[in-house]
């Protein structure tokens, strides 16, 4: 049995007829943290949406194998129940649904899928209180509607809280650092680090090297124009930070010439 969690081969995907991913290859093994960097519009977020099955994105070629199975045949909820989690760049506000109810429904749904007994309201509250510590959130967040009126940092922490409850095998964090001040960034990073295990993996999507000081990646990839054009260790991120993304244009020109 291989310890590969995710394998993406020559993945091409389009949204509204415009090709965004133009042949992505990526392999993530258990216990690894990967970071994908790149400019706006390079296809980073699209990749996360395609992995989680957003209906607006059409896969035109290639495949995604998750734990040995063809992921592209599965509905978004099946992917989630199989252990894939996406922390959204812009978490959605859902007025009228209490955060606690939402968390319980999602958590119990996952338990049911795993053949475990659902937790009752009291036991769940105990569990969620414990997880709240991880992201240093106040219990009053539970009573509020999902993400409604949350600050940017609170929304991101709420994503990590959900991740902590759902214990995914593959967690994709889409610009989890955007809009966070340094204290919130540390809290979020600390939360993620505590959830790292030998049998799970993380895919971080970010513009900035800063996040990677706190969540140290095993592999750093650079995405440009719908492809992963470069991969390396954590030092690649430092290099990028120093010289920016402009060299990608130079390379593009060179290949064109």
């Amino acid at each position: 049995m291989s310890n590969t969690i995710l394998e993406i081969k020559n993945l091409k995907a389009a949204v509204e007829g415009v090709e965004i991913l133009r042949g992505v290859n990526l392999e993530i093994k258990a216990g690894e943290v990967h970071a994908i960097m790149g400019r706006n519009g390079s296809g980073k977020s699209t990749l996360s949406k395609v992995i989680t099955g957003h209906p607006d994105y059409e896969v035109t070629e290639g495949e995604i194998i998750y734990l040995g199975e063809n992921l592209l045949e599965k509905a978004p909820e099946e992917r989630a129940l199989a252990g894939i989690f996406l922390a959204f760049q812009y978490p959605i506000e859902i007025p009228g649904v209490s955060n606690l109810d939402f968390l319980r429904v999602a958590y119990n749904n996952r338990r049911k899928h795993l053949g475990l007994e659902e937790l009752d309201a009291f036991d769940f509250e105990d569990l969620v209180m414990e997880k709240l510590q991880l992201v240093k959130m106040d219990a009053s967040f539970l009573e509020r509607s999902v993400n409604e009126g949350f600050s940017g940092g609170e929304k991101k922490r709420n994503e990590i809280l959900q991740m902590a409850l759902l214990e995914p095998t593959l967690a994709i964090l889409d610009e989890i650092d955007s809009g966070l001040d340094i204290d919130a960034l540390k809290i979020v990073a600390e939360g993620v680090n505590q959830l790292r295990k030998p049998d799970n993996a993380f895919l971080l999507i970010t513009h900035y090297q800063r996040l990677l000081n706190y969540i140290v990646p095993d592999v750093v990839h650079v995405m440009s124009r719908g492809r992963i054009v470069m991969s390396g260790d954590k030092n690649l991120a430092l290099e990028l930070e120093a010289k920016g993304y402009d060299f990608l244009d130079e390379e593009e020109k060179l290949t064109v010439v």
Binding site: F88, I92, N109
Partner: peptide, 14 residues
């Protein structure tokens, strides 16, 4: 659609 997707990405059926 984005709200529905958010919930589905948390494992809830459509």
């Amino acid at each position: 659609a984005e709200e529905v997707f958010y919930l589905r990405s948390r494992g809830l059926s459509e």
